[in-house]
Design a protein around this nucleic acid. Structure first.
Lengths: 160, 160
DNA sequence: GTTTTTGCAAAGAATTTGCAGCTTT
DNA sequence: AAAGCTGCAAATTCTTTGCAAAAAC
């Protein structure tokens, strides 16, 4: 699926701004890697990005792709799909439920809501495929991680 | 988080029934591995399950845990969190959107809905942590995979 | 008894890291 | 020029697989 060029350009500009604002270096690799994901709605994995970028930068290495992808994630410019950045996790809760996922530590907690169980999906979804189940995924920061970050920032301030 | 013992027992029975119905063997390893995930709402990864099961079956091997976990998934008794069972995927779509994920091939397609953008979460969520963003995750089978499965089952029928 | 599953160990993927040289600011 | 990034290759980490022994039906 190809993206609207205007939107793609907008994303690219936002990216450059973000780099400058954060004082991060803007290399050709970073630019191409970003363009590769920004120009698509396919949510590629590292390997696919690598293949795509190689077409224009034949010398990029896979590790640079990995490093850049995580760097982009840290910058808040891309996100990862799913709850964690690593291992597969399993769910034996067969009753209807929804997930809260901590974007720091990966903690995943179920929550329940009859209202959310009754969501009505737009018709465009049926055009993609048959629907098996639907759930709401809330990403945020759990209390434990929030406390830890507050403590850390106090330490950096030097207790002013 | 510990689960209500009554619910845990109910899950256990459903599991045994499912095994019998499918003509699958019920080994002590499978039982303990299932109990390990069913008794928790923590959505553990393979390594955690392994550690937990070892307390009661000191000889289980990690590979059995992996095999059993995927077997349970195939049986429809557990699910995996996130879109795919493998690599991390990245998302550069910063505009508000939702996901359709094909449980067969992993295809992930964005879709949009102003109504879903305005979801009201239950208050219980705020008790878990601060909310960063919310999106709906629809799991189903994409048209391409549906076609393929239909073709496969026709072949098995022997063209009756 | 037969068929399947398990455990072991080794293989295979996916992802990360150390270090010297090159690019960006 | 200084600092930070990249590429290479090697190291880790996570997950899967082949095969003989063991367990379930």
């Amino acid at each position: 699926m190809v993206l609207d060029p205007v939107e793609a350009e907008r994303r690219l500009e936002a990216f450059k701004q973000a780099c400058k604002a954060a004082g991060e270096k803007l290399t050709s690799q970073r630019l191409e890697i970003f363009k590769e994901i920004a120009a698509s709605e396919e949510h590629p994995d590292a390997e696919s990005v690598y293949r795509g970028v190689r077409a224009r930068l034949p010398n990029v290495s896979l590790d640079t792709v990995y490093r850049t992808l995580w760097w982009l994630t840290k910058m808040g410019i891309v996100t990862t799909l799913g709850p964690t950045q690593d291992r597969t996790r399993f769910d034996a809760n067969l009753t209807r439920h929804h997930h809260f996922v901590c974007i720091r530590c990966g903690l995943t907690r179920d929550f329940y809501s009859e209202e959310l169980d009754r969501l009505v999906l737009p018709e465009s979804v049926a055009a993609i495929g048959s629907i098996e189940r639907t759930q709401v995924e809330v990403k945020g920061i759990c209390h434990a991680c929030a406390r830890k970050e507050q403590a850390d920032s106090r330490n950096l301030d030097g207790g002013s």
